[in-house]
């Protein structure tokens, strides 16, 4: 597969996943507010922090009100990671590889983009209802469903999965972080009903509540973290994502599982074994926030490794021609 095409498929997939997760962020925050007794004032600012774009937000908006934050994260084209920017990106990437993906994927993504664009351009964009964000989630599900049922399990599909899984691991970690930020100033809630409500909102935001219940029954922060971080079977759990990404990486290169031949595989393998052998107690005692911070840096390093290994144009002389 052409390096440029692989790169575009990878980013197309990452951007759709990013848009979906932004919708989940906004959604979970809306739910959290409903559960907080003392109003919403300080709830939206941490969300901007979680995305790591505080300075940029402050430049564009005066106050971190719900309307402003949702507008910024969802509909603001000036912010390069807003839902609409992600979808524009995904669509441009898809356009440049239209011949390499199924045409239904392109058509759906095209419609998906127009759906968000229409919402962004209407007089009062939907900044206080879940409906729009549900729609974004469903459109993203549909996109993945079309890819899964129309693409051969070749390089293209694996690059799409790789991008999706890395993005998802990063974003699930950030959703856990939202909870961390919200709770930080309110330690007195820990263990209360409100705490329970909030953790279930977090689980719901990644569609994990039902699967969690099947496994653990009662809600405890400990177990929620364990489930979202270390579960191998739940598709939005971080360990699951890393395992899937590692599988796709090896499927692309043909390297024997459990070994590595390039920097991307090495870094991925290191992270995979770390997650496989760490306990949730270790994570919490060393600090969840620090652990997540570290994890995000490792995921970034893996992304860089993938770029260096498969995408960057290598000097002609060093390569033997392959037929």
């Amino acid at each position: 597969m052409l390096s440029r095409v692989a790169d575009s498929i990878y980013w197309m997939s990452r951007c759709v996943e990013r848009a979906e997760n932004l919708a989940r962020f906004v959604d979970v925050t809306m739910h959290l507010i409903l559960d907080l007794p003392d109003g919403a004032a300080e709830t939206w600012k941490p969300l901007v922090d979680t995305t790591g774009e505080r300075a940029f937000f402050d430049e564009l908006y005066e106050e971190a009100t719900q309307e402003n934050v949702v507008r910024f994260l969802s509909f603001d084209s000036r912010y390069p990671n807003s839902i609409i920017s992600c979808l524009r990106n995904a669509r441009e990437n898809a356009r440049s590889v239209r011949e390499a993906i199924a045409s239904e994927m392109w058509e759906h993504l095209n419609q998906f983009y127009f759906m968000v664009k229409d919402a962004a351009e209407c007089e009062s964009p939907p900044t206080n209802s879940s409906d729009f964000f549900d729609e974004v989630k469903m459109a993203s599900h549909l996109f993945k469903g079309i890819a899964d049922s129309s693409m051969s399990r070749g390089e293209g599909w694996h690059f799409a999965r790789l991008g999706r899984m890395i993005e998802r691991a990063d974003k699930t970690s950030r959703i856990l972080d939202v909870k961390y930020y919200v709770l930080l100033p309110r330690l007195q809630y820990v263990g209360s009903t409100i705490d329970d409500l909030q953790w279930s909102a977090v689980l719901r935001s990644v569609s994990a509540l039902e699967m969690y219940r099947k496994q653990f029954h009662g809600l405890s922060p400990h177990r929620v973290v364990e489930f979202l971080l270390l579960d191998r079977e739940f598709p939005r759990a971080i360990q699951h994502c890393v395992i899937a990404a590692d599988e796709s990486l090896h499927a692309i290169s043909g390297t024997v599982p459990g070994s590595y031949r390039n920097i991307a595989e090495q870094r991925m393998g290191q992270l995979r074994s770390e997650l496989a052998y760490i306990s949730v107690d270790d994570v919490i005692s060393s600090g969840l926030h620090e652990f997540i911070d570290n994890l995000q840096m490792k995921l970034n390093a893996i992304g860089d490794g993938i770029f260096d290994t498969f995408i960057t144009m290598r000097p002609v002389e060093s390569q033997a021609a392959q037929q």
């Binding site: 002609v316 021609a321 037929q323």
Partner: peptide, 25 residues
Amino acid sequence: QLVEGRDLVVKDGFLFMRTTSGFER
């Protein structure tokens, strides 16, 4: 394949495209 100029490279009198697994004639 749909290629752009930057996907192609000339080497030893032949034309190749850059792929994820090396150069293909």
